[in-house]
């Protein structure tokens, strides 16, 4: 369970001190090669993910979209190294991912901040582990990036849900991971906070070369944020269709009224409806 990390796995860019030098490297390309996942349920093998092939280019913002049970979280867990696939493999750039390593980081719906550390120590933890010369300085930089530098000395439990997610994002980015995985990060927030968080995320992401995989079941959210949307097929989960979102950046919530947006939206709704009906009918019987 506890695995020491050898120094050579640490990406060089994790040692950088400021955020400006990003958006220039070509790190963070993801190669998913014939990944399938089977679970044992009551002694019976149950296929959660049929073989999936997927390539995500460095620096892209890609959403996994689909009804619950389509395996989008399972796929994300495999990419992050938290779950071993039954077959196939995942590579980030040229490094095979078989367990959680600092080439990527994950922001979950329920934050995984360490409740026993102050906000600043949570954010400084990664930089410190990866040999940053000034972990606290880096942590402060990232806390101001998400607008929470004034809350550095509080404990996570003293913050609101939205603030906790911003700290989680700051902590995840503070080690400059080439890949950032987000599993319904705003799912537990109210609608207003959620909209603001989406805008903030886009602003922050604009400064980074980080590849983002964003899991959601909110269609508008997926279109608004992504370069590409991977619509998932259900039972077993696999890739149904990949849809490009050719809307220029920087984006504002206004684009939701645009013609392109509604066209993509209708297409996605159709695809997801098919899948949802499939599950609905199979459980009805």
């Amino acid at each position: 369970m506890i695995e020491a990390l050898s120094k050579k796995e640490i990406p060089e860019a994790s040692m950088t001190q400021s955020t400006d030098r990003l958006r220039q490297s070509n790190r963070g390309a993801i190669h998913v090669d014939k990944v399938s996942v089977e679970f044992k349920r009551n002694g019976q093998a149950f296929s959660a993910l049929a073989p999936v092939d997927l390539n995500v280019e460095a620096g892209a913002f890609v959403s996994f979209l689909g009804p619950s049970g389509c395996g989008k979280t399972t796929l994300l867990n495999v990419i992050s190294g938290m779950l071993r696939p039954t077959t196939g493999s995942v590579q980030i750039d040229d490094t095979p991912v078989t367990r959680p390593i600092p080439l990527c980081n994950v922001v979950f719906q329920q934050h995984s901040l360490f409740p026993w550390m102050k906000v600043i120590d949570n954010v400084a933890f990664g930089p410190q582990q990866l040999g940053d010369g000034d972990p606290e300085g880096t942590a402060r930089t990232f806390l101001s990036l998400v607008g929470l530098d004034k809350f550095a000395t509080l404990y996570p439990a003293q913050l609101s849900g939205g603030m906790q997610q911003r700290v989680a994002i700051a902590r995840a980015l503070a080690t400059y991971p080439p890949v950032l995985l987000m599993d319904e990060p705003f799912g537990a927030l109210d609608a207003q906070t959620r909209t603001i968080m989406q805008e903030e995320l886009l602003k922050i992401w604009a400064n980074f070369s980080t590849t983002v995989i964003f899991v959601t079941h909110d269609i508008d959210e997926a279109i608004y944020l992504s370069d590409r949307i991977v619509v998932m097929r259900t039972a077993p989960g696999s890739v149904k269709e990949v849809i490009d979102v050719p809307i220029p950046r920087p984006r504002t919530p206004k684009i939701m009224q645009s013609e392109v947006f509604s066209r993509i939206r209708l297409r996605v709704i159709d695809l997801i409806r098919e899948e949802t009906l499939k599950i609905f009918n199979s459980t009805e019987r």
């Binding site: 369970m1 506890i2 695995e3 020491a4 990390l5 640490i10 994790s14 992050s80 938290m82 367990r99 959680p100 390593i101 600092p102 990527c104 980081n105 994950v106 979950f108 329920q110 995984s112 901040l113 360490f114 550390m117 933890f125 990664g126 582990q129 990866l130 902590r171 995840a172 080690t175 991971p177």
Partner: peptide, 22 residues
């Protein structure tokens, strides 16, 4: 919690930090 172990791994925690800080 597993999520805390995983989070520490993503942040590059070695064995010592995993025990003493997590």
């Amino acid at each position: 919690e597993k999520r805390h172990i995983h989070a520490a791994q993503f942040l590059g925690a070695g064995r010592r930090a995993m025990i003493m800080k997590i």
